[in-house]
Amino acid sequence: MVSKTEEEEVNRLESQVDNGGGGAWEYLSLVRKLKLRRSDKVLKHGCSILNDSKKRSALGSEEWTLYEQVAIAAMDCQRLDLAKDCIKVLQKKFPGSKRVGRLEAMLLEAKELWAEAEKAYSSLLEENQFDQVIHKRRVAMAKAQGNISGAIEWLNKYLEIFMADHDAWRELGEIYISLQMYKQASYCYEELILAQPTIPLYHLTYADVLYTLGGLENLHAAKKYYAATIDLTGGKNMRALFGICLCVSGIGQLTKGRNKEDKESPELQTLSALVLEKGYKQQSPTKLPLLTSALKSLKLS
């Protein structure tokens, strides 16, 4: 989870480091802690630390963590030569280490030598059957080869053993969404909400999935989850506010002419529209006319 203050901190440090101010190590540590994928920056600033022997030795044992971080970032930026150099250093320091072995296998993956990488991973798994990261790498490998159904199969197998791994649930949900299998995706997000009910983004995505599925019942449920997102973010999440508006107008369309007693009160929609307008006025007044026209079209339908 990245909270608002942490996000601001990262952005502040990033601009500071980019403009030549110090704090590169703090920035890299924060990126690692928050698990952000800013490989180009990590590569640039990580190398500048690693090339400076004074700075490097000041890190103590953290030096090796930095080597690992830079190696992965280098693979992500397709600088395989650099990744290889980093891994060589680590290999010299920790011969026979499984963590370095994993990095080597990842390098094979980055070179697209799938068969070799698979062999390396299975030999690593033979030593330790319950290495979660390696299981996940296999899923990623199937995904990288475009074998999405294979990735789903691996992930389902993995989740049978490690049911509490919410990152894996999230990945599975995202894969299902990419395949437009919304029913299955909604199941994954239900699991996520159950595991971490205080994270508004899971509620939001679940609501999105339900809204996409459509149908009166799903729209009602989606509205509730959008409302939960608003509750958890203090009304700062624009997407959830838009979601409420869309849901209410969708429900109105579906129930039009049915003249039921349990007609929705329009209060929720007008309130969220008000908050939206206020937010746009504050943040980007130029786009306000766009918003008002969009809201008007929603209310008319």
Partner: peptide, 12 residues
């Protein structure tokens, strides 16, 4: 408040 989830680096 949570503004974003960490990138799923294990599956990168």
């Amino acid at each position: 408040r949570v503004v974003s989830l960490p990138d799923n680096l294990d599956f990168m």
